[in-house]
Structure formats: C-alpha cells, structure tokens
Amino acid sequence: MKHYQNWLVISLFLCPALLLIVLFLYYPFFMSFFRSFFKWDGFFTSEFIGLANYKRMFMDTTIHKALKNTMYLMFLACFIQVGIGLIIAVFTDSISKGAKFYRTVFFFPIVISSTAIGLMFKLFYVYDGGLLNTLLNFLNLESVVWLTEKSAMTAVAVPVIWQYVGFYFVILLTAIGRIPDDIYESAYLDGINGFEKTIYFTIPLIWDVIKVCFILAITGALKVFDLIYVITQGGPLRASEVLGTYMYQKTFVDYRYGYGSTIAILIVVLGLVISYLVNRHLRREEVTY
C-alpha cells in the first residue's frame, strides 16, 4: 500500500512535464505527419492528396539542393567543428598556465544569440567597408563579392562553426581532463611524443565522448536556421538553402503548409537515420579506465 501511494505521488510529479511534451511536441509532430498527406494552405483549403507531397519532394530540385547543403553542413560540423574543438582541447590540456582563461574565451560565442552573430558576419561580408574587404584592400588586393552562388554555403557555414567550436571544445577538454595521468606514464618512459600520445591514447580513451559530439553536431546541423536566415535567407539563387530555411519559406512565405510538413518529416527521419548509423558504425570496444 505504501509503495503504491508513493508511485502515485511520483507519477503526479511527472504529469506537468508529460502534458507539456505531449501537447507541444508530440501532438504537433503527429499533426505534421498527418498534414504531410494534404494540400493545405493552413486555414481554408485542405485536400487529401495521399503521397503526392512525398512524390513531389523526390522531384523537387530545390530539396535536392537543400539536402546537399544540409549534408555539407553536417560534414563540416562533424569534421571541422568537432575536429578543431578536439585539436584546441588537446593543446589547451597540455598547458599549465592560462588554460582557464583560454577556456573562458573559447566558450564565449555560445552565449551570444545566433541572430546577433548572423548580423555580425553579414556586416563582415559587406562589399563596401565590410571587414573582409577592408582587410583585402589593406593588403592591396581587390575587393571580393563574398556571397556569390558558389561561396554562399561556405560563407554561412563559417559563422556556424565559429559559434559552436567552443561547445565541443569544452566537452572534449573535460573528457581529456578526466583521463588519469598514470595511464600516460609508461608511455612517457618509452619516449612517446605529444602527437603519438594523442593518436594512440587520448582519442581512443575519449572515443565515446567524441561520438556524443558527432551526434550533437549532426542533430545541430539539421536545426540550423537563424544564422542562414539572417545572412543570406537561403540565397543567392538558393545557393545556401538548407532544409530548415526551405521549410520556413514553403510554409510562411508560400503558404504551402502541407508540403512544409512533409519537409519537417524528412528532417526528423534524416536525424533518426543518421544518428543511428553513426551510433552503429562508430562503435568500438569500450575502453575503461
């Protein structure tokens, strides 16, 4: 009886949270799923069209472009973002003085809003008087148009990387810091250098954490919206369109809510599939220490 009563009280604690996620996450999610089979302008006309939205998605060249760009962003997020984070973490871990100071500064961009950072980089890319062209002119070079069809995707990826490197850096630095020193000791006696130490010891020992970083980077890349929206709005000529910005455009600009919902479903499925694959393929034997 006592146990039962306890269970009841504890379940009551969970009620508000459950209500919240069911109401604001699951319900809209299933509505999206449901609506992805409709042609729907959001308010008045609503017509069941079966899989037509999905078929259309496979034919839609903009989706292909957006998908490619999202993948590109994911790739950069995993390798450049987490990679730089790891390198900086290894270096920071090996210094004794000032590590805290570096850590503080590297982490800082995280707390600034994405829109402010987007605006900031947009200003850097300005043709007349923007920081980058001023720099080029100073070096006696011609000004460059930074946001062209070719370069736009990289131009919007840079601020994304710039903002989040610090996040992975802190995670990895903490993981490295937790490796006990005596693990390295015998290796030191064998005359191992810093590079070998990183490759053969540090990385395998924190592999699990690196995997977490990859998954965070992938799901994060799927959700990127504000930064790109502020800097290029997906342009020029859709060169920097990603799934998030395209979904926004379809729903709030073109009022194709049904199709927008289909893109939302695509994003969820992608997230699930890729996280699963990463989890499976990066599995290694657990190293315990």
């Binding site: 996620i21 996450l25 809209p28 999610f29 509505m31 999206s32 799901t219 729903t251 709030f252 919902s261």
Partner: peptide, 26 residues
C-alpha cells in the same frame, strides 16, 4: 516503474521539434 519508457518518450523529442505550423495553431 515505467521510468525507461518515459525516458524514451523524452529522448525521442530531442530529434524533432513539433513543426512550426501545428505548434502555432495550437
């Protein structure tokens, strides 16, 4: 009891957000 099921329910939401339109209408 049932903690793991609820936990799974929670974790799954990290992969998506409800979608703009349905949330807005709600």
């Amino acid at each position: 009891v049932g903690k793991n099921a609820i936990m799974a329910l929670f974790v799954f939401t990290m992969l998506f957000n409800g979608g703009l339109i349905p949330t807005y209408l709600l």
